[in-house]
Simulated assay, not measured.
Amino acid sequence: MAPPSGPVRAPEADGAVGARIKAARREAGFTQQTLAAEVEVSRQTIIAMETGDYAPSVYLAIKVARALATSVEALWG
């Protein structure tokens, strides 16, 4: 059976993870574009993480947390 097409939904549907990412990004003084460049993804990927439409790989989650000077657990925990 083929996997479903479309975005990978983050497990937390209430948007809390996305809100934490967005708040940490703003606190760090980053725009979506700046954070995207820092972690080497597209701005659309950052938008999708902030809206809960994309659950990043562990590697990307670590890069985002480091760029925002926080922990993975603080953002996704």
Results as ranks from 00 to 15, higher is better:
residue 29 G to R: 09
residue 74 A to K: 14
residue 25 R to I: 03
residue 42 S to N: 05
residue 16 A to Y: 13
residue 25 R to E: 08
residue 51 T to W: 07
residue 38 E to T: 05
residue 18 G to D: 02
residue 44 Q to Y: 13
residue 36 A to C: 08
residue 74 A to M: 14
residue 31 T to H: 10
residue 15 G to S: 10
residue 1 M to S: 10
residue 68 L to F: 07
residue 2 A to M: 09
residue 67 A to P: 01
residue 38 E to D: 10
residue 23 A to G: 07
residue 5 S to G: 01
residue 18 G to K: 04
residue 38 E to C: 03
residue 31 T to E: 12
residue 6 G to T: 10
residue 21 I to D: 01
residue 49 M to V: 07
residue 60 L to C: 05
residue 19 A to E: 15
residue 12 E to H: 12
residue 70 T to V: 15
residue 66 R to G: 01
residue 62 I to R: 05
residue 70 T to E: 13
residue 24 A to T: 07
residue 27 E to A: 15
residue 52 G to Q: 04
residue 48 A to T: 12
residue 40 E to C: 12
residue 31 T to Y: 11
residue 58 V to L: 10
residue 76 W to E: 01
residue 19 A to G: 14
residue 23 A to H: 07
residue 68 L to T: 03
residue 75 L to C: 11
residue 42 S to P: 05
residue 51 T to K: 08
residue 54 Y to Q: 05
residue 75 L to H: 04
residue 56 P to G: 04
residue 28 A to F: 06
residue 60 L to S: 03
residue 66 R to L: 07
residue 73 E to V: 12
residue 39 V to N: 03
residue 17 V to G: 06
residue 41 V to A: 04
residue 29 G to Y: 09
residue 23 A to W: 08
residue 57 S to C: 04
residue 70 T to Q: 11
residue 64 V to Y: 03
residue 39 V to Q: 01
residue 27 E to G: 13
residue 61 A to R: 00
residue 39 V to K: 03
residue 1 M to I: 07
residue 50 E to C: 02
residue 67 A to T: 03
residue 21 I to G: 00
residue 53 D to S: 07
residue 28 A to R: 11
residue 22 K to T: 12
residue 49 M to K: 01
residue 77 G to E: 13
residue 58 V to H: 01
residue 26 R to I: 15
residue 39 V to T: 01
residue 43 R to D: 14
residue 54 Y to L: 10
residue 56 P to E: 04
residue 40 E to G: 11
residue 55 A to Q: 08
residue 52 G to N: 04
